[in-house]
Simulated assay, not measured.
Amino acid sequence: MFKANENYLKLPGSYLFSTVGRKQREYGAAHPDKKVIRLSIGDVTQPLAPAIIERLHKAVDEMAVAETFKGYAPDLGYEFLRNTIAKNDYADRGVDISADEIFVSDGAKSDSANIQEIFTADSKIAVCDPVYPVYVDSNVMAGRTGTYDKNTELWSDVIY
């Protein structure tokens, strides 16, 4: 029989960005005459550039053909992508870096949550305040944060 991770149950309330979204909606409803500039998760100010749209369409077409189909990327990311990053983001700006020094992942959230798994559960963590929620939440689930104080909204074993 499986057992749930009891640390997961320590997570307070909702995810920060859900709370921010709820507060934005409440404020907007209470103040319909006010313009709200949203700088929250996923908010953008401009449509995608034509070059990006063109490349996305090309990538979709590539995925429809066996010869150009790409499945899961290799552990460090596709070599063509790492070479492109090395050239366009570094070499073209005078930085000497090779593709084998570049790691392409699926995103910061999973990397942030996964990297802490190399440390023991009794390791101390320190975060800036405010902090991106996954930095603390992943450590809550790993059992490193102690107890949560609803009044201060701080964890007993986190150094802020």
Rank of each mutant, 00 (worst) to 15 (best):
F2R: 10
E6A: 11
Y8F: 14
G13P: 00
F17D: 00
S18H: 07
V20G: 08
V20K: 12
V20I: 15
V20P: 08
G21N: 14
K23I: 01
K23Y: 11
R25S: 06
G28D: 07
A30V: 03
H31Y: 12
H31V: 01
P32W: 09
P32F: 13
P32V: 10
K34S: 13
K35F: 11
V36E: 01
S40Q: 08
D43L: 12
V44Q: 02
V44I: 11
T45F: 13
P47W: 03
P47F: 09
I52L: 03
I52D: 01
I53C: 10
I53P: 00
E54T: 06
H57A: 09
H57W: 03
K58M: 13
V60P: 00
V60H: 12
D61A: 09
E62S: 11
M63C: 08
A64I: 05
T68L: 05
F69R: 10
G71C: 01
Y72C: 00
A73I: 00
P74Y: 05
D75E: 11
L76G: 02
Y78T: 00
E79G: 01
E79T: 13
I85G: 07
N88I: 04
N88V: 08
N88R: 09
D89L: 15
Y90A: 08
A91F: 04
D92A: 15
V95F: 14
V95R: 11
A99E: 08
F103M: 08
V104L: 03
V104N: 02
S105K: 11
K109P: 10
K109N: 15
S110I: 10
D111H: 13
S112C: 05
N114S: 14
N114Q: 03
Q116K: 07
E117L: 11
I118K: 06
I118V: 09
F119C: 05
F119M: 09
A121W: 03
A126N: 00
V127D: 04
C128A: 03
D129M: 04
P130R: 13
P133K: 06
P133I: 13
P133G: 06
V134M: 13
Y135G: 07
V136R: 13
V136W: 14
N139R: 04
V140S: 02
M141S: 14
A142N: 04
T145Y: 04
T145A: 12
G146W: 07
G146P: 04
T147R: 01
K150V: 07
L154S: 12
W155N: 07
D157C: 00
D157R: 04
D157V: 00
D157F: 04
I159M: 02
